[in-house]
Nucleic acid binder design. Structure first.
Lengths: 193, 193
DNA sequence: GTCTATATTAAGATAGAC
DNA sequence: GTCTATCTTAATATAGAC
């Protein structure tokens, strides 16, 4: 299962990067279901069969695109992603990329089925994200900045939940401000003056 | 567009009800993409073409199933659904129906595309839900039960966001308690003793 | 009982996945 | 190129109104 073993020739590495970028654009514009591998191959100037050399199928390509974007988002911010302080910035970034944001939203919901290619990816992602945010919360509690009448892991679930839930509302109504909603939940969690 | 005009013969009305129930079961078990209309028709003991007499297509069938379940959820509770007090009960109910919950989660994300058959359905649903919850919040604020340092409509967005976001986390990890998370966000919103 | 609306089906066109 | 799923067309059977 998963991405095929990576060749080491420079041309192959570059082509793979190209394919990830192009696939991300096409998925973002047409949606996952609306995309055909033929179209991705055409845009990349290769045959469909060549695509199958790099990715074992459509779902595998999707998973690779998601992981790649995640990694880019991480390195764009200092290097400690998922840190609580980065959330508003990530939300702002997402507002500027509606296609990719929708892709993530759809993928994270469809991949809840255990047989989906990206299932493990998202499960690990949530596990790591909740742990990281939970640690941030615990530290902020120790500093007396965040209320202690809620467990750190429960607060982390709320914050991540608001992030995903508001994103959905924003996709239906772009007037919604995702950074504001994140600021709201953080304010509710803050120790009262 | 949308569901075909409803016939008036008793047989047709009953068959349509049957189809909605069976389609809900199959969608919940196999997922929307994993379901074939042939299978739904077989389970109902009719030919595929007959299905098209009642629903104009697969997406239309999905929309009808979602709306029908929504209506049933509404009538199951006294009659004022979407009321804040019903949320924990609805969350508990959803925990007992993972397949349908996943169906809703996937559909609400995929229908963010304006050309999706269920787009208007979900947009209206969120609009109505946020308005209803917002009114509940405003009333609770007037009674001095909920903090007034957040606007009612913003608080409503947070609550609905937590509902959807936690649902996603629960689909990846059934140990998550959706009612607890709802209780947590309501506690953060409550006026401190 | 006849007539119209509705329900059902057979056969096949189209399109997308692999 | 082959196969499978969605959807059309057009013709037949049945339900219910008068």
């Amino acid at each position: 299962m998963g991405t095929k073993p990576q060749g080491s020739y420079a041309k192959g590495v570059e082509r793979r990067r190209d394919l990830l970028r192009i696939a991300a654009e096409v998925f973002a514009a047409e949606g996952f279901e609306g995309t055909t591998l033929k179209l991705v191959a055409e845009r990349a100037g290769i045959k469909e069969a060549t695509l199958f050399h790099y990715f074992s199928g459509k779902q595998d390509l999707l998973t690779a695109v998601l992981a790649d974007r995640d990694e880019q988002n991480s390195t764009r911010h200092g290097g400690s992603p998922g840190s609580l302080a980065d959330f508003p910035g990530i939300a702002e970034h997402n507002e500027r990329h509606p296609g990719l944001t929708a892709l993530f939203a759809v993928a994270s919901a469809t991949a809840t089925r255990p047989d989906h290619a990206a299932h493990d990816y998202f499960r690990n992602r949530y596990s790591w994200l909740l742990r990281t945010v939970g640690q941030d919360i615990a530290e902020a509690q120790a500093r007396g900045e965040i209320r202690t009448d809620i467990a750190p892991e429960d607060a982390a679930r709320l914050i991540v939940g608001v992030f995903d839930g508001i994103q959905l509302q924003w996709l239906y109504d772009p007037d919604v401000s995702m950074p504001s909603a994140l600021a709201d939940i953080l304010r509710l969690l803050a120790v009262q003056a």
